[in-house]
């Protein structure tokens, strides 16, 4: 089963390497990882999607917690949470089929953020399912290249993950 972990870490150089090293060393699989700053400049937040059964996830969580610079680890999988991914997709859109591509982009409420004579870059934001569906819908036109952020997640409601 796939789990979404939200990990609050100190904003130091090398923290990402420690986390990545831990996953590598103990043989856990990272499906995606997104890191960025938080409301507190001293902290960063990582959203890690990891595959494993409950026992593996418990080990991952506890091993992460052991890292000195990791302040808090929470498993969002069974909690109400919002999750989003962003993808940029450069799709083939020659004049005869361009209209079709634009239609699909509209249906998905995605955006076109770059236009060239043969291609468009589509920006899509949504949960994993939506991003995957967008990619499938564009695939027949020819995807030249693509980049994805990995999942970001926050708990719903007033509760927040803080250093305290």
């Amino acid at each position: 089963m796939r789990h979404t972990l939200s990990v609050l870490v100190e904003n130091h150089p090398g923290v990402l390497a420690r986390v990545a090293n831990l996953f590598r060393r103990r043989g856990y699989n990272i499906e995606s990882l997104a890191v960025g700053s938080t409301e507190n400049p001293a902290l960063s937040r990582m959203t890690i999607v990891v595959e494993g059964d409950d026992r593996v996830i418990e080990q991952v969580t506890r091993q992460l917690d052991k890292l000195i610079e990791v302040i808090k680890v929470e498993n969002f999988t069974k909690e109400e949470h919002v999750n989003r991914e962003l993808a940029l997709i450069k799709v083939q859109a020659d004049p005869p089929r361009r209209g079709e591509v634009i239609q699909i982009v509209d249906i998905f409420r995605a955006h076109i953020v770059d236009v060239s004579p043969e291609t468009l870059i589509v920006e899509v934001t949504g949960d994993e399912g939506k991003v995957a569906a967008m990619i499938e819908a564009l695939r027949p036109f020819g995807i030249k290249e693509m980049v994805r952020t990995g999942k970001l997640a926050l708990l719903r409601g007033p509760r927040a993950l803080t250093a305290e």
């Binding site: 090398g14 390497a17 420690r18 090293n21 831990l22 060393r25 890292l67 000195i68 610079e69």
Partner: peptide, 14 residues
């Protein structure tokens, strides 16, 4: 050496 000893120290500092 901080990179090398990352998995064999409780923590390390540069």
């Amino acid at each position: 050496i901080t990179g090398i000893t990352m998995p064999i120290t409780k923590h390390n500092f540069l």
